[in-house]
Nucleic acid binder design. Sequence first.
RNA 1: GUGGGUGUAGCUCAGCUGGUAGAGCGCCGCGUUGUGGUCGCGGAUGCCGCGGGUUCAAGUCCCGUCACUCACCCCA
Length: 427
Amino acid sequence: MTIQAPKGVPEYVPPQGDEFRYVRDQLATPAILAGYKYIELPYFEDVALYTKGIGESTDVVSKEMYTFTDRGDRQLALRPEGTAGVIRSVIENNLTQNGLPIKIWYAGAFFRAERPQKGRYRQLQQVGIEAIGAESPALDAEVIALGYEAFRRIGLTKFEIQLTSLGDSTTRPHYREVLTSFLSKLDLDSETQERVKLNPLRVLDDKRPEIQKQLVDAPLMINYLSDESKQYHESVKHYLLEAGIPFVDAPRLVRGLDYYTRTTFEFVHSGLGAQSGIGGGGRYDQLMGSLGGKDVSGIGFGLGVDRAYLACEAEGIDIRQALPKSMVLLSIGETHDPYAFKLAQELRANGFIVDYQAHAKNLKSGLKNADRLHAAIAILVGDDEVAANSVSIRMMDSGEQIMVLATNLILELSNRLTLGSNMWKEA
RNA sequence: GUGGGUGUAGCUCAGCUGGUAGAGCGCCGCGUUGUGGUCGCGGAUGCCGCGGGUUCAAGUCCCGUCACUCACCCCA
């Protein structure tokens, strides 16, 4: 038995690797354009951060964390989500000192010890943002808009924004009582009854038809909002409507993490099967305070890069054509290798993406190689070229080929590639 | 944790009521000794997941086991 990757861990090998990287980068771009600053955080944290921050009653904390004890007997956990770590860092580094709100973004891997299935992995990648220390419907709308833009940017169209408000600390307890008393009258299995006690809201999300049937008349949070929360929610919706960002009211929307209050949303894709959520987030009024920081509210989201990538596939989006085109430099026969090697260095120094394939057996096999590598341009260095201090530039799709002086190569390429020239270079 | 499906060539998969292994794609070579893709011809590749059982005979039937996968719970 050869060694395999751990169960439930996705891999993106070439050529998918570059496509995945593209998706991840594009998902982050709207936030960068909006002035959000990057934060690099640890991949493991004190277990207490998550039990206190996310809530012990959540599945994520109670049964899906990868926890371990280090040599100093510290209880640690691979991070299952991003927000708690961001808040911890904001508090620890006093980032709230220099004016609010602070807007940051992050990207990276998260870990959940779940049973894997399509689109649900034990190691998942997210791009996330957080805007901390300000409450205004405009900010909520901005965060939602940035998520919307992110998915649009990679070409997704078959998704919708589901939006609701989970109420504030003054109205939530009352609603919870109402809901609990409703649920306690239903015919539920013991496991679900247990969930009613722990977190009744989550029962609304149950997909089993026999449960859903009983929930048609369930009381909804949206009808129990305080005037203040209601007004705030209406205002958020108004901003979105004005900006032309489509959303649907989702009064039964529930999220898996306990810290969400008021504005709560999810990006749901229709082409993914069971794991349809490609992103989600919301506002958290108490999280900063409960972790020992300033008592201010924040809002953020996490976008699933793995699922976004799957969604592209489901929509038939051709990511490869969006990637930079590549050039292959071929030397025919060994004698020209040093000459070609030097040319490759020069091209790269000028920003071109150049794959140098040394000493092709003959031109035919060299071109075949270039074709297999999906090169858009082949630069040929053979006897004829070297004799004339030249190289040949061959456009692989048209077959058009010209010989130019080596000293003019950079200039020639730059001239020929003016249209969309960034397509040939690494950002 | 619960339920279903699948393990056969590098990949996707076919292989009927048991008779000793196949296709497409890819790969290598030749047609073409400086021109790739298309086309034609030729070629290589398998402990049929693993262990046991039934049988003259097992990829095929039975038992076990491992892995993968989809779905439920839950989540990005």
